[in-house]
């Protein structure tokens, strides 16, 4: 399963990066969110052991590792905030340059 997970994380990363490199701003935001997914998947799979039951104190079976889960929990929400913020900035860029094409945004220089 490790191999499959690793390859999947790699694929997601590649897709995210590819999307971020698109000229269409909406696509680059989608790329950013796919990257967030990839990272969360990575975090999940770093759990020290594979559990059979949810991480409750009442569980009798082998519990899943609670620590990465707590990390992901916050990461998921934070990445939503970050994405929304990026969207707002893209909106400003598009209204300022009258374009949704990243290549036409050239105000970084000068």
């Amino acid at each position: 399963m490790e191999l499959v997970t690793a390859v999947a994380v790699g694929f997601l990363f590649a897709i995210g990066v590819f999307q971020m490199l698109r000229r269409n701003v909406i696509r680059s935001v989608i790329g950013l969110m796919i990257l967030a997914n990839a990272v969360n998947l990575f975090l999940l799979s770093t759990g020290a052991y594979d559990g059979l039951a949810a991480a409750y104190t009442t569980a009798t079976d082998m519990r899943s590792d609670a620590l990465p889960q707590a990390l992901i929990l916050t990461a998921v929400v934070i990445s939503l905030g970050g994405t929304a913020f990026v969207l707002a900035m893209l909106y400003i860029i598009s209204s300022r340059y009258q374009t949704a094409d990243m290549d036409e945004v050239n105000g970084l220089k000068n």
Binding site: T5, A6, G10, F11, A14, I15, V17, F18, T46
Partner: peptide, 22 residues
């Protein structure tokens, strides 16, 4: 570029997963 980054991340993940403490 995306493929290179993806391959890199795959390798890192694999290393992290196989070497992680149990």
């Amino acid at each position: 570029v995306a493929g290179a980054v993806g391959l890199l991340v795959t390798l890192i993940t694999l290393t992290a997963l196989t070497d992680r403490p149990r």
